[in-house]
Design a protein around this nucleic acid. Sequence first.
DNA 1: TATTATTTAAAACGAACGTTTGAATAATCC
DNA 2: GGATTATTCAAACGTTCGTTTTAAATAATA
Lengths: 249, 249
Amino acid sequence: MPDNKLNLDTRERILDVAERQFMAHGYEGASMRMITREAEVNLAAVNYHFGSKEGLLRDVFRRRLTWLNTERLSVLDVLEQQANGEPLKPSQILEAFFGTLLRIGEDDALGGMTFLRLLGRTLTDPAEFIRTFFAKEYAEVLERYKLALFRALPDVPRAEIVWRLHFMLGSMSYAVAGTDILQVITGLEIGDISGQDDNNVSEAKKLSERLLPFLLGGLRAPLPQFADSTIQQQVSLAKTARNTLQEKE
Amino acid sequence: MPDNKLNLDTRERILDVAERQFMAHGYEGASMRMITREAEVNLAAVNYHFGSKEGLLRDVFRRRLTWLNTERLSVLDVLEQQANGEPLKPSQILEAFFGTLLRIGEDDALGGMTFLRLLGRTLTDPAEFIRTFFAKEYAEVLERYKLALFRALPDVPRAEIVWRLHFMLGSMSYAVAGTDILQVITGLEIGDISGQDDNNVSEAKKLSERLLPFLLGGLRAPLPQFADSTIQQQVSLAKTARNTLQEKE
DNA sequence: TATTATTTAAAACGAACGTTTGAATAATCC
DNA sequence: GGATTATTCAAACGTTCGTTTTAAATAATA
């Protein structure tokens, strides 16, 4: 049986190629033969090192998510320590949660834009084992940040906060996936996201600069006030827009 | 050769089952044998009526998107006619674009939540023919709404508007896909989205009530002001936490 | 009625899939 | 240095995939 001191070359090479192929073609679309051919290893190497194709995908993510999870937790720890028991500001929480993620895109050692895109695309994969895997991997971090948001917005119903966390995850996931139809249509208008190495860093920066203000604006938007007159309400929101969800800073 | 006046029973039955299976398992995950077995038609019927599996997926979407596209365009036409040459309000534009989509979820005759979920999940599929298909199907409508937003927000750089349209599409797509990890974790906290028929209507309404204010808040959020100090911001935020992203209200 | 369109059944196509096997090779340990 | 374990390799496994080809039967149209 294989131990833990294996040939790192082979393992890492497989993980690198698999990360890229899963990103480019999806989990089902990337075959083990394509992966092992490009990694220049034997076909059986994947089953030997990772047990199965599912195991390979899991390890592709685990390699990056362990860093992301501990980083997100420690950043939140530092913030809460500095706050001395006071609630954090929503902007701080979003910055910690999404900023930490987006920093991956600027550092190829953490996975770079390749991993970010893979993450965004895989988060919407309907396969059961993928969903349960993510649920388990994200559980602790999401719980911590959820509670932080509850404390930061004590006057907002908790269900509403969860909804908006939900929406924010969607914006981030989709933006980072880079499969947007807008990109196909508008082309270079918002920058060529499919660029290579050097571009990725500036690309991640541009994305981060623009995504976080958007998310904060969405999180702090006025709440729906009348539960059943949706259309009228939304139209009139343009005028009465500034009186709810006020952040106390 | 098949004409256009076919046996609607078989065609429609295949489309209904395929819509559901593509939603549940993804394009690659749903096999023609599963689809034809559940639709109780011969295996060869798909190739006879739709030419190929790709053709089937295309027609599954075309059946719904033709309604969506014409509805979105006509709603915008009416709004612009009523505005008498004046720019529309952003809330009107979002209501027309996203509200029209979300109405599908309330009407099973238009596809219901099944189609909405399929749409959300397929929008992030990396397969080439899917992306080019959507690009072509969405091109005209997106161009019209983009221009409407440019007119509604004349002081905002157009590139920023495109970015935010991008983010809004992401929130909507992800929320509607219903594969969110938050749902797996928080469970029933925001309502059981996988409910059946009756639930779908109220589910779609609840989603619409909450998504549109969020999107509007994101669209109208203050713009990023310093273009290049992002990284330092993120790292140092833990310490100097209160001086960035200030919103002027 | 003649003709065309649709549906069924059954079988097979070649290709690709993830996985397994058993022998050969490389690395490690006593 | 010999024994043991870890890794690599070529080859084959059985299954499933989308598609096509037969054929006959039924339905719709001219």
